[in-house]
């Protein structure tokens, strides 16, 4: 087929495209709707990225707004001079790195353990329970966290003080709060994220395990030499995507969990943008911040992908 295509003259190629479209047009029709969605909701709004470089006005169209000072870079300069932004940047990095270090391996380990379970029914029950937190909104999770971790009325602290220990400031001390934040994040997502790995594990050829058993490999040997290498491409793809999001942050998780006592550790870029942009009306400044965030994310994504390819993995494209 490939050879044929190479040899074929131009006219014939055109004809084969027509034939091709005639055969597969239904697929493209199916594709049209999601493409339209992306266009309308993801690409068209990007026109307004310009306001990062312009003096924003609600009554002018984005094309009419005058360019900001310093060749349009005024708001980027302003952002980097703003201590709150630097803090938010640091917090975003720290929280995301911790999330990556602790939160990324968790679903892999969980999937490996789950895979070793012999009782099918027990496995299914565990799996379902582990998925469940994924469907809770962060506001509800914070409500639960308050019931459990609040310093005076939290269930856990009431037990601790009842036993004569000091209560632990899970939510009202910055260092403890970071721990709580990471823990709740892992708890909420590890079950759901393990689905991908479980699917990858299911795709591994079972003959490999049989052969390994014949060769005398135990559980751990099989896990190490068959399961892990089997899901390595999946791990790498997800790792690359996670690294691409190192400076991105969800809004609802930090926003729901933060409180005034831990703001020095809890203010992240997403909440900074909300406070200064939506509430403080500094739309240009916060668009600049968002734009910067996206640029860094793209750089990280490309870099991680490049490294993974260098290391002989497939990367995501």
């Amino acid at each position: 087929m490939k050879k044929e295509g190479k040899k074929a003259p131009v006219a014939q190629k055109k004809q084969s495209f027509g034939v091709y479209m005639k055969r597969y047009w239904q697929l493209y029709v199916l594709l049209a709707l999601p493409m339209l969605y992306l266009l309308i909701f993801k690409y068209v709004p990007m026109i307004y990225i310009q306001i990062a470089f312009k003096k924003y006005s609600i009554v002018q169209s984005v094309w009419e707004m005058p360019l900001a000072a310093n060749h349009g870079f005024e708001y980027f300069i302003k952002a980097f001079k703003n201590r709150d932004f630097i803090n938010a940047l640091r917090n975003t990095l720290v929280l995301n790195l911790l999330d990556l270090v602790i939160g990324f391996p968790a679903p892999i380990i969980f999937a490996l353990i789950l895979n070793e379970l012999v009782f099918k029914r027990f496995k299914r029950v565990v799996q379902t329970i582990a998925y469940m937190p994924h469907f809770l909104s962060w506001v509800i999770i914070y409500g639960l966290a308050l019931q459990i971790f609040a310093p005076s009325t939290g269930f856990l602290n009431m037990i601790l003080t009842g036993l004569g220990f000091e209560s632990i400031p899970f939510l009202n001390d910055s260092a403890h709060w970071v721990g709580t934040y990471i823990f709740l994040g892992v708890w909420q997502s590890f079950g759901w994220n393990s689905i991908v790995y479980l699917a990858a594990i299911a795709g591994i050829n079972s003959e490999l395990y049989e052969a390994a058993s014949v060769d005398g490999a135990g559980r751990f040997k099989k896990m190490w030499h068959i399961t892990l290498p089997g899901i390595k491409p999946t791990i790498v793809v997800l790792l690359v995507m996670n690294l691409g999001n190192i400076l991105g942050s969800s809004f609802d998780r930090p926003f729901a969990l933060q409180n005034n006592l831990v703001m020095d550790a809890a203010e992240v870029l997403a909440t900074f943008v909300y406070k200064n942009g939506i509430k403080g009306l500094q739309f240009s400044l916060t668009t600049a911040v968002g734009f910067f965030q996206s640029i860094v994310c793209v750089i990280f994504l490309l870099l991680a992908n490049w490294i993974s390819r260098k290391l002989g993995e497939r990367g995501i494209w």
Binding site: D84, N172, N259, N260, L261, M263, K275, N276, K279, G280, L281, Q282
Partner: peptide
């Protein structure tokens, strides 16, 4: 201009952290 909400939330942080 534009400082109201930011400074108000800072104010609350100052009060809350100082009291506790």
């Amino acid at each position: 201009e534009g400082q109201g909400p930011t400074l108000s939330s800072k104010r609350d942080v100052v009060y809350d952290t100082a009291v506790s």
